[in-house]
């Protein structure tokens, strides 16, 4: 008789509970996908009264959606670039020197995601108002960059720490100056971390709504458009299509970023 049950087998109860948790995480999203096919325009009746594909076509025709989408993509792109630069600089500084206040820097960078989004949002809004800065594309970007920086920073710093420290010294020792060392040694080493961090930052910015509601003024990003539909539903079926689209478009970079991080830790394991 086995004296302990911690073999490879889990009990049925545990398996069931785990499966339940997993379904709870994912089934609701599938329900949105289901509703993109409903012919019902005014309610969320279930079971669906029928099946139609026309909403995809209608959504494609909507000018306002295209504008919102373009704005969201532009904001996410610029915020990601800013986050890549600022996050990498901060990670490099924290990695290379043991100066006083390293902890404080990590803490400062993490604040925008540790504090509720509404705090960042209302703080920025109040500051913009207080200094009479008009809302614009750039005020949205500034808001997004505050919480995107930490994503890049975390990814890049983790990679720096896994990188063999002596590689940088080896490069300098072999005659490369700091800039050459960055180009030929550091950059190739952190490239996938930058890619992963950048994609996560992009996904984060692309569907951010809380801070955006405070810094966007009259501009409508895609999440703001969805939010307005949530409070005053006018185009329910089109919203379903947009929701599914947002889910899919953010899924790709998130999935790739996950794979990238997993892969790079695998290959490092091999070389050891």
């Amino acid at each position: 008789m086995r004296s302990n049950s911690f073999g490879p087998k889990a009990s049925w109860g545990l398996k069931l509970a785990a499966l339940g948790g997993l379904l709870f995480l994912h089934v609701p999203i599938l329900i949105i996908f289901l509703y993109t096919l409903t012919p019902d325009e005014t309610t969320y009746t279930f079971p669906l009264p029928g099946i139609t594909f026309k909403w995809f076509g209608i959504a494609l025709q909507r000018e306002d959606l295209w504008r919102a989408l373009t704005l969201s993509l532009k904001v996410a792109a610029v915020a990601t670039i800013a986050a890549l630069i600022l996050g990498t600089l901060a990670a490099a500084a924290v990695y290379r020197s043991n100066f006083f206040g390293r902890e404080a820097i990590s803490f400062l960078l993490i604040l925008p995601i540790a504090l509720p989004g509404i705090v960042t949002g209302i703080a920025l809004r109040t500051a913009l108002g207080g200094f009479d800065i008009p809302f614009s594309f750039w005020t949205i970007v500034i808001g997004h960059a505050t919480f995107c920086v930490v994503v890049v920073y975390n990814n890049v710093l983790a990679r720096f720490r896994r990188m063999q420290g002596s590689q940088i010294e080896a490069s300098m020792d072999l005659g490369a100056n700091s800039f050459q060392t960055f180009r030929y040694v550091i950059f190739p080493n952190i490239a996938t971390a930058l890619l992963a961090g950048g994609m996560l930052a992009f996904a984060l910015s692309f569907d951010e709504v809380i801070v955006t509601t405070f810094t966007a003024g009259q501009d409508t990003t895609l999440p703001i458009w969805i939010f307005s539909q949530l409070t005053r539903p006018r185009d329910r079926p089109v919203t379903n299509v947009v929701a599914m689209f947002v889910m899919l478009i953010t899924f790709v970079p998130i999935f790739l970023a996950q794979r990238l991080s997993a892969q790079s830790s695998d290959t490092e394991g091999e070389t050891k």
Partner: peptide
């Protein structure tokens, strides 16, 4: 991990339907 990063807004929206 994917739900952690994916659209918070859309995930709220799903429950409006449900």
């Amino acid at each position: 991990t994917i739900p952690l990063w994916s659209s918070y807004l859309v995930r709220v929206y799903a429950w409006k339907l449900i």
